[in-house]
Design a protein around this nucleic acid. Structure first.
Lengths: 193, 193, 193, 193
DNA sequence: CATGAATGAGTTTTCATTCAT
DNA sequence: TATGAATGAAAACTCATTCAT
C-alpha cells in the first residue's frame, strides 16, 4: 500500500475528517483517535503528519477559512457595483458550504479555541481583517466616512446571524439570512440605493 | 461543624466559581477540582450538591442568564417610550457585568455546550425568545409588521458584536458597542425617530 | 479503606517501590504503572501524590541520599580520631544497605538522570559536597594542605569501587572494598599512621 | 543509485551518530529515528543494517572501547619502564577524545545498559579485564604480590574520576585528573620510584 | 540499496466520579 | 455536611519496527 506522495492526501483527509468530526460532535472535544479513524488511518500517523492535536485543529480551521476566502473572491469577481460587492460578501458568508451545520459547529468551536490558542486567534484575526476590508471597499464609494461603521455593523451582523444558526432549533434558511442582512445594508446606505 | 442550610450557599459559591473559572480559562475545559477549589470546598462536595459536572455548568449558565434577565428588566422598567425600551435592551446587553471578558468567555463556551447539552440549548432558547419578545415590544409600535425582522436583526447584531468581543484583540468598548447597535436601530426605524 | 493521613504512607511506599523497581530493572526505564503496582496502588494515585514521574524519581534519589547521610552521621559519631573519621565514611559508603545491588543500580541510574534533570544534579552535588567536607575534616589534621587532594582521591576511589560493583560480575565484597580504600588512605597519610 | 559496499560506511556513520546523540542527550533515551537522521539515512535503513536498536547501541559501545583500546596500545608502545606503562594507561584514560563530555555521557549510559544487556556487560567486562591486565603488567615489577591490589585500586580510581566528570559541574581538567591518579600511584609504589 | 508509509504497543498524565469515614 | 482517598477510563503522544515499492 505505501505509495509515494501520500502526505498531502493524508493531510487532506485528516483536515476533512476533523471538520466532520467537530461538526458532528458540536465541539472541539474531539479525540485524535476518532479523527484518524474517520480519516482511515491510525492516530499515530495523524501525529506523524501534523505533530500534534492543536496543529490538526488549526489546519482544519485554516481549511475552512481558505474555502470561505475562495468563495468570497469568486463572488466578488462577478460584482461590478459597490452594492453588488457587499451583496457578494453576504451571499458568500451564507453559502451552502458555509451554512452547513457541520461548518457552523466547527466555526463556533474555533471561536472558543481562539481564546486560548494564539494560532487560532491569528487565523480568526486574519479572517476578520479581510472581511472588514472587503466590506469597506464596498461601502466606501457609497458612504464615504460613514463606511467604517457600516462595515463594522454588517460584519458583526453576519457573525451574529451565523452564530445563531449554531442553535439548530429555530434557525433560518440561507435565503432568509441573506435577506435579513441585506435589509440592514439597505438601511445603512439609504433609500436612494 | 457542619451548619444547617449550607446548600444554597455552597451552590452559589460553586456557580460563581464556575463562571470565574470558565472566564479565566476561556473555554469549558475546566475541571471540577479547580471549580471546587476556587469555591473553597472539595470536588466531592461539588458533586454532592450538583450531581455532576454538566449540571454545575448548566447552573452557571442559568445564573448568567438570570443576571442578564434582571438587568434587562431593570432597564426596561425605566423606559417609557418604545425607542427607550429598545435602547434599554441594548444597553443591558453591553452592561459592564455582561461585557467583562470573563462573562463573554463563559457565554461563548455555553454556546458551544448548547451544541451537545439539551439543557444548555433550552436555556439559550429561552434567552433568545425573551430577547426577541422584548425587542418586538419595542419595535412593534414603531414598525408594525416590519417589527419582526427588525427585532431579528438587532438580536443578531447584538450577538455578533458580543461574540466578536471574545477575540480580545481589536475589541471595542461598551459605549462603542451601544452606539453601533443604536445606529442600526435608527436606520431601521427611520430618521424621524 | 480510605483513612486519614495516608499521604506519608503512600509517598513512602512509592519511594521504596521506586528504588526496588529501578534496582530490579537496572535502569530508569521504569514505568509509573509498575512502581505504583509494586506499591499497591493505582498509577493515578502516584501522580496525585507526586505530581509526575520525575518527582517520584527525585524523591527516591533523595531518600537514598538521606539514608546514606544518616549512615555516615551515625558512623562519624563514634569516631574519635581523624583516621577513624575517614574510616567511618568509607565503611558507611559500603554499608550493607548501600551495597545492595538494588541500591547500586538505582545510584547508577541517578547518575545518568543527573545528566538531564537539574533536580537530580543538585542532589548529587549536595552528596558530593558533603562527602568532600567530611573527608576533608578527616584528612586536614593529618595532611594539612595536602588534605584537599587526598579527599578528592578517596572520594573518587569510593565512587569508582562503588560503580564497578554495578557490573554484578566479578564484583568484590564489602569488606574487600573497605580494605582496598583503606590501603589507599594509608598510602596517602603515610606510614606513620 | 545504490552503490556497492555501502554497508561499512553506513554502519560507521550510524555508530558515530549514536555516540554523538547519546552524548548530546546525556542518556540512552535516544531514538533510532534521531540517530538515523544524524547519520543521514532513514531509520528503516538503520534497522536493516543492525537488526534493532540494542544492536546499534552495542556497536557504538564497542566502537568506544575499540578507540580506547587503540589509544592505550599506542601509549604503551612508547613506554619503556613499568612506571611509564602505568602512566601511559592513565594518560590514555583521560585523553582528549575520552574526556569529551559526549564520550563520558555515552560511557555512563553504557554502564547502565550493561545492567540489562548481556552484550553490553560482556563488552564492559572485556574492557575491565584489559585494563586490569595492563595495570598489572606495570605494577608487577614494582610491587610483586601487592600488584594486584594496586591495579584494582588504580582501575577503580580512574573509573571514579571519570564518572565524576559526568556531573559537568565542578569537574576537573584532564591534567588535574592525570595528576590526581599519578599521586595515588606514587603513593602505592612508594617514594623511591 | 534505500525509504516513505504505517502501526501496535506502551507511557505519562488528567479527571470525573465514588466511597468510607 | 464534608472530605481525603482512590481509581477506571481515556487522552495525547512516542517509538521501534515492518513492509511494499
Amino acid at each position: 500500500m505505501p505509495k509515494l506522495g501520500m502526505e498531502p492526501i493524508r493531510r487532506d483527509a485528516l483536515v476533512k475528517a476533523t471538520i466532520a468530526e467537530i461538526g458532528a460532535a458540536g465541539s472541539l472535544d474531539v479525540t485524535v483517535a476518532r479523527i484518524a479513524k474517520r480519516a482511515g488511518m491510525s492516530s499515530a500517523l495523524a501525529h506523524h503528519y501534523f505533530g500534534g492535536k492543536d496543529q490538526i485543529l488549526v489546519a482544519a480551521m485554516r481549511h475552512i477559512l481558505t474555502l470561505f476566502g475562495a468563495e468570497v473572491r469568486g463572488a466578488l469577481a462577478m460584482a461590478d457595483t459597490p452594492r453588488a460587492r457587499i451583496d457578494a460578501i453576504v451571499r458568500a458568508s451564507f453559502s451552502p458550504a458555509n451554512f452547513r451545520t457541520e461548518t457552523i459547529g466547527a466555526w463556533l468551536a474555533f471561536y472558543v479555541q481562539a481564546q486560548t490558542s494564539p494560532d487560532a486567534r491569528r487565523l480568526l484575526a486574519i479572517y476578520r481583517r479581510r472581511m472588514r476590508s472587503n466590506l469597506l471597499a464596498g461601502f466606501r464609494p457609497l458612504l464615504a466616512d460613514r463606511a467604517e461603521i457600516a462595515a463594522e455593523t454588517v460584519g458583526a451582523l453576519i457573525d451574529g446571524v451565523y452564530i445563531r444558526q449554531a442553535l439548530r432549533q429555530g434557525a433560518m434558511g440561507r435565503d432568509d439570512a441573506v435577506i435579513l442582512v441585506n435589509k440592514c445594508v439597505t438601511g445603512l446606505v439609504g433609500e436612494g440605493h
